[in-house]
């Protein structure tokens, strides 16, 4: 078994286990779900704050609720799935797919600017930005 296949196996097990955990337990009201260290230290939302609640909402089919907890998480998910499908296709089924979009200079820059803007705006205390907060 190649390293890539072991990696795919371990990641699949972790994704299934975490998927089940976040399907069964709502992070709201269960104290064992870890709180963001950045939020705990500063009281500000980081770009990842709300991801656990967003995942719970998404697994129960509440897309808009998930986006309200963390818009970045919902927007990034299709790209992460796309990347995972290409990785699995290349290493399990002998395809030679290219992860082209991630290697375009503009894509990385757009992602960076979007994440930084999201981080700043979700902490701005004006009511027009409240929907972005976790």
């Amino acid at each position: 078994m190649s390293i890539a296949r072991i990696k795919i196996l371990l990641i699949s097990i972790a994704v299934l286990a975490l998927g089940l955990l976040y399907y069964l337990y709502n992070p709201v009201g269960h104290s064992f779900f870890p709180e963001c260290p950045f939020y705990a230290l500063t009281g500000l939302d980081c770009p990842g704050c709300g991801s656990q609640r967003a995942l719970y909402a998404l697994l129960h089919g509440h897309l808009l609720q998930a986006a309200a907890y963390n818009l970045l998480f919902v927007l990034a998910l299709p790209f992460i799935i796309y990347s995972a499908v290409i990785f699995a296709g290349n290493h399990l089924f002998g395809k030679r797919w290219n992860q082209n979009i991630f290697y375009k200079p503009w894509f990385a820059k757009v992602a960076l600017v979007f994440i930084l803007l999201f981080w700043i705006l979700r902490n701005v205390p004006f009511s027009c930005f409240h929907w972005m907060a976790a």
Binding site: C36, P37, F38, Y39, C46, P47, G48, C49, S51, N70, L72, F73, A76, F79, I80, S83, Q99, F102, Y103, P105, F107, A108, K109, A111, L112, I115, L116, W119
Partner: peptide, 26 residues
């Protein structure tokens, strides 16, 4: 370029270090 990995840690590990990863990825 570690772009997907750094975006993943930015979303899930809740730490701004992931952003440094995205800067270098770009």
């Amino acid at each position: 370029n570690w772009l997907v990995e750094s975006i993943l840690v930015t979303i899930f590990c809740c730490l701004p270090f992931g952003i440094a990863g995205i800067v270098f990825a770009s």
